[in-house]
Simulated assay, not measured.
Amino acid sequence: MEGMAARAGRTGSKKDATTAARRPQVRLPPLVPYDGEGLEPDGDYDGLRFDGVDLADASGPGARFMDCALDGCGLDRTELVRARFVDAVLTGVRGVGTDLAEASLRDMEVVDARLGGTQLHGAVLERVVVRGGKIDYLNLRNARLQDVVFENCVLSEPDFGGAHLVRVEFRECVLKRVDFSAVRMESVDLRAVAELDIARGVERLAGAVISPSQLMELAPAFAAQIGVRVEG
């Protein structure tokens, strides 16, 4: 019996272990400076560097960016619905109302972005790192995130409602008033979050791993979910 219990414990440990996210390995080739104006619907952008290009109000739904770098670009109200980014690096981009609904982001790095109201609902993110910067009101409703790392960034009121998160890590970042309503989580690591403030969806943390200190902080919310009153 003891041997069976030990084997069951080992099996449970393996099953419950959190798998680390696979980070992108982006190696850009020599890039050609982009000398166009704006964007084109279903445009094909390959091996280009957008250096400080103002893409405010540009419309490029369905555009494809492969082996591209966007450095210091303005993305105010830029329409990139169903766009595809593959092997791309975005550094210091800024803007409000960027529309990336149903976009596909794969093998990509986003560094020191300053964005507000970015629409990524229904999008697919695979092997993506978001490092540094601040993003307000990020809309990831019904998106699928697989092998995604948020690192040293501030996410203010992000909405993950109905999203599916697989091997997602939050490292040394701030999550303010995050919405996890109807989220599905598999191997989501929240232990290294610098500040964890869950506005909705605390009951959807099944599939995530948190630290003992976070458990203590979330205990009142967990108790409220199951109808337990805590009185002195």
Results as ranks from 00 to 15, higher is better:
G207V: 04
D57P: 07
V81S: 02
Y137W: 10
V93K: 02
P212F: 13
S213E: 15
G232T: 06
V89A: 02
L70H: 03
G162Y: 03
V128W: 06
S13H: 11
F85T: 06
T98Y: 07
A113K: 13
R49M: 00
L28K: 10
F180D: 00
V26A: 00
G122M: 13
P29I: 09
V96E: 03
R64M: 04
M108G: 00
V193P: 03
D112L: 01
L39E: 06
R106C: 06
L31A: 05
E79T: 07
G95Q: 12
L90V: 08
V32N: 12
Q25F: 12
A219D: 00
E40H: 10
V124K: 14
G92H: 15
C173G: 13
G232R: 12
R177A: 15
D57Y: 14
G43P: 13
G133L: 05
S213W: 12
L218K: 01
R22F: 06
V93D: 07
V129E: 06
E217S: 09
D57C: 07
A6R: 15
G60E: 07
R77E: 04
G60L: 04
G161W: 05
G122R: 14
G161H: 11
D46I: 02
V183Y: 10
A101L: 05
F180C: 05
L75S: 01
E217F: 03
D67E: 04
A219K: 08
G3N: 12
R200K: 11
Q25A: 15
L70R: 08
R22V: 07
P24N: 05
L48C: 14
S187I: 00
I226C: 07
D54H: 09
V128H: 04
Q25W: 09
N142L: 10
L80S: 03
M108Y: 02
G162M: 10
R22A: 10
E40I: 00
L120N: 10
S211Q: 04
G132K: 07
R106W: 08
F65H: 06
C173T: 08
G232F: 15
A113H: 05
R144V: 13
L39P: 02
R49L: 13
S104F: 04
T98Q: 13
R141K: 14
L140W: 06
K14V: 09
V228A: 09
P220E: 05
L215F: 15
D99R: 11
M66I: 10
K134G: 01
R127K: 13
E79G: 01
R184G: 00
T11C: 13
G60D: 06
R10T: 03
R114G: 01
S187H: 15
R94I: 03
R184S: 10
A101W: 07
D112S: 09
G116V: 02
